[in-house]
Design a protein around this nucleic acid. Structure first.
Lengths: 123, 123, 123, 123
DNA sequence: GTGGTCTAGACCACG
DNA sequence: GTGGTCTAGACCACA
């Protein structure tokens, strides 16, 4: 009904991932305020609790810090820590299974599209 | 406590995926019998209903067929149909998100390991 | 209105602390199931979400593990890890301030009651 | 980002406690002026309303008194009344829980550091 | 304005 | 039966 949300994953997870992506892409920088819980809830027509759950998880991960009465802000070095942490998690927890599937299905670089050989800029 | 199961996915899904992998890898060929529901349930200490659900899903996908009183058997051309179907599903439903993650994290072929350029044998 | 709950702390925190205390006191041992979310909610006349929040925190802390469809169970070595972790946290985060207060107020062992000199049994 | 404030307690409470500590430690004596709301707010980069709330609470407790146009001053016998009141509050409201935690964690005097046996001078 | 907590009640997937 | 997610709406403390 709402094309914004993917039904195969909880909404709070998608909100969380969206923020993570924005930090990784540099759209949210250190010290930037996150849109308020209420704002996101209203705009995306989602319950505030759902947004809060996502934000709480970001805070637990140290990606965001709360300032009483003011809101939530991207922490220092959030992007660097994210890159390191998410990379490790991806390579350890997701990639082995994905790679096995790729090989099992006999998929090739032509079908998958190219993955760069050199690291792209990170700064 | 039980390292056999991944908590991030339903057990019946993992059983189903395990059978699919065995077919793709050629460990289960056309006409081969699947291990009995009871055997799998006992050995993996899982509720028989859970195994049944996995097998039922395999039957619904046309990958196995029930023969009354005998059990379930891998159907003809199961591997070929699987390859086509799973490939399509993977490329459409999973790969785009995975690829976006890879790019966002700046992962390279060195870190991921090589993916063959040419299609490997499929028959 | 309900003497069970202390108004100065969130209920979910009190539920969490209650379970922690039961593990430390040996009333809940490795592998023991936690009372179900619904059971606690009904018995304590609290919303299931509130209980869930407490239980989720216990799971995040690794004190408890979820088994799909079965419930939540005390993990191996939960008590030992709790003792170590909670001790460290208490000594680092709470005790310095508490001790400063005690000294500032000029409180003595007579007023506070005795604290044992030797470690009590832990096993 | 600002190590001055502890997120687990409201800022106005922390300001209040800071003044109380200074009185108990003799750094602020009877008749001494409190730093102005504006000064504290500027220096600690806090909303003046927050400082005001802390000062108001101190005034409500009879620890300081407002003199129109001059500011706020520590009242007579502030330290003595504080000692009595805070002691009672601490022993009744905080110490029982703290002591239970200490015993549960099996903490000893060695780990906690020594608490004097005799009452130290009280003024 | 901000986030934090809670309720009542619903629907879902899993075993 | 279990936990998981979500909604709608309320009240609170804090700045």
């Amino acid at each position: 009904m709402d094309p914004e949300w993917n039904d195969s994953q909880p909404i709070y997870r998608q909100i969380r991932d969206r923020v993570v992506a924005m930090v990784l892409d540099g759209l949210l920088k250190e010290g930037d305020p996150l849109p308020s819980v209420r704002a996101v809830a209203t705009e995306s027509r989602v319950n505030p609790l759902t947004v809060m759950k996502a934000y709480q998880q970001l805070a637990d991960d140290g990606l965001v810090e709360k300032r009483r009465g003011l809101g939530m802000f991207v922490t220092t070095d959030a992007r660097e820590r994210l890159l390191a942490g998410e990379r490790e998690k991806f390579l350890a927890e997701r990639w082995p299974e994905i790679r096995a599937t790729i090989e099992r299905l006999g998929l090739t670089r032509e079908l998958l599209g190219v993955i760069p050989f050199k690291t792209r800029g990170e700064g």
